[in-house]
């Protein structure tokens, strides 16, 4: 890229006063010596003038009081609840927030589902096993459900005549709930 191209890329920033002192000086010196770049500068200045002129002319015709009345009307107007909700959502639910909120929600739901079995008490909520069939081959067997721990217990008594035991012996030979 030659010097003129470099300078022309910087004319805008130079006019805006945004160049460093040394860069600004380099542009100023070049413009003083180069007629082509000087024309480019004039064109840019005219462009800015045209754009500004047009808008300043428009704005100068805006009377304040009618404008303020328009603002007041908006302030005093009763807004429906859904307008406020819509306005809030437009401001709060921006695309970047939604883009992050949706995967964050998925991750949170995933974590909750995974934690289900690890939280104290929660894991045992559905721990009741159902006994579909049982054959104790002549022995006495008890099917028990312990509510506190939600545990199904299959208890095999030691002899085939377990039902004839006294209550005292049963408490020593088997669980009591």
């Amino acid at each position: 890229m030659n010097t003129c191209e470099t300078i022309r890329e910087s004319i805008g920033s130079w006019l805006d006063g945004e160049l460093s002192p040394s860069a600004s000086e380099a542009v100023r010196l070049h413009l003083a010596a180069c007629s082509d770049c000087s024309v480019a500068r004039q064109q840019l200045e005219k462009l800015q003038l045209v754009v500004k002129d047009e808008l300043v002319t428009q704005a100068a015709s805006i009377d304040f009081m009618p404008f303020w009345r328009g603002v007041q009307q908006r302030i005093n107007r009763k807004r429906a609840w859904h307008e406020d909700l819509f306005e809030w959502s437009r401001g709060f639910l921006t695309a970047p927030r939604i883009a992050w909120a949706v995967p964050a929600l998925i991750v949170v739901l995933l974590a909750l589902f995974s934690l289900d079995s690890y939280l104290p008490g929660r894991g045992v909520r559905d721990n009741f096993a159902s006994v579909e069939s049982i054959d104790a081959h002549g022995r006495s067997v008890a099917l028990l459900r312990e509510d506190q721990t939600k545990t199904t217990v299959i208890w095999l008594y030691q002899d085939q005549e377990g039902e004839n035991e006294t209550a005292e012996e049963a408490s020593k030979s088997g669980p009591t709930f």
Partner: peptide, 11 residues
């Protein structure tokens, strides 16, 4: 405040 900035904002 509106008085100060209404023209600039309009522009």
């Amino acid at each position: 405040l509106v008085s100060r900035y209404h023209q600039k904002v309009f522009m």
